[in-house]
Design a protein around this nucleic acid. Structure first.
Lengths: 192, 192
DNA sequence: CCCATTGTGGATCGATTGATCCAGAAAGGT
DNA sequence: ACCTTTCTGGATCAATCGATCCACAATGGG
């Protein structure tokens, strides 16, 4: 048999996610990564292929540990409105904490999409998952009369995803959760 | 007297804006800039100081030629709702045209804010100008009963600015104006 | 018709980038 | 105990980065 890997892959990806999240892709060098991850460049390239491969692993880690958790909580709320409100406020809290770093996926859409169109699919899939989860919650609520039927659930869900994108950008410009929460209340009036 | 500048400064800034807009700051090299602007590196540094100086000039050019124009049209509309709708749709059109490059200011917030906090002020001022213009239009409409008084005009304006940020991000992920326009209609129900 | 001044573009600088290479270290089947 | 295989981290690579330098060109007052 061969030598076993010494470092914890998931922990390394988590560290890499933090770096890419706070600094962006281009501004994070391989030296930054190896020193923060505590591994050599040889190990990094053997495990992840190249810098882009590590970035994609970090993006996937972001999806499963943060975006997906917010969606899981969504289905557990009592009424649709308060569940959606909690999800939006939670995402804003994450984006504002630790120095207003925003959302890794939104940052990726702004920074990496022009030079690497294949990342569009990754981001789109993440947003589609959010849109589907919201559509489900809204459809269920509409049948029970919890929300008005002025707009169909799919359009309403797409609106909320786009509004969330805006919240995550605004959270970088104005990293103040209390200033952003009133905007959530305005957005929720679309459910009336 | 000394030699006169041969190139058109404003035209050069406009070209630089296009490059930074489509590729981002880090991914645009000085060689890209000099070859596209048709000037040497010496001229570039003499005129703009450094790469960051040229970027800020490009951002200012974006503000005056695109963002400000959208705001000017805002005040000329007949009723507040259709004026705001037209402004949002126009910004989406600009963001989607030429390959879904989004909005230079939103891109700047995502890519450059972490490494250069002083750019936050520039972006914030641009968004504040939009928010004030929207507040004015909404206040005037509220007095005439054009929009409901469920939310105060300032909060409503801030909501619209944040929603616009979201539209500009979504326009990069889904560069299809027809898919985004229904979301504008949902957002406008906040005025009811 | 000079000459001080400023603009010109390309050569060049040191620094840093992402990626590769390599000698040695662990691992376990035989 | 050997030996093949894989992992490790640091040296090293060519390429490129932003920035500076420089010899020359253009300008218009004196």
């Amino acid at each position: 048999m061969a030598r076993t890997r010494e470092f914890d892959t998931e922990a390394a990806v988590s560290r890499a996610m933090e770096l890419f999240w706070t600094r962006g892709y281009e501004a994070t060098s391989l030296r930054d990564l190896t020193s923060r991850l505590g591994i050599g460049q040889g190990s990094l390239y053997a495990a992840f292929g190249d810098k882009d491969g590590l970035y994609r692993a970090a993006l996937e880690h972001y999806r499963t540990t943060l975006a997906a958790v917010a969606l899981r909580d969504l289905a557990e709320g009592k009424d649709a409105r308060s569940a959606i409100r909690a999800m939006l406020v939670e995402r804003v809290r994450i984006a504002v904490d630790n120095g207003g770093q925003g959302c890794l996926a939104v940052n990726a859409a702004c920074e990496r999409l022009p030079e690497d169109p294949s990342i569009r699919r990754v981001i789109r899939d993440m947003q589609d998952a959010s849109r589907r989860a919201l559509t489900e919650v809204l459809s269920a609520a509409a049948e029970r009369g919890g929300v008005a039927a002025r707009h169909d659930p799919g359009t309403l869900a797409a609106f909320l995803v786009t509004f969330l994108n805006g919240l995550l950008v605004s959270s970088k410009i104005t990293p103040d959760a209390r200033a952003l929460e009133p905007l959530v209340e305005v957005a929720l009036t679309a459910l009336d």
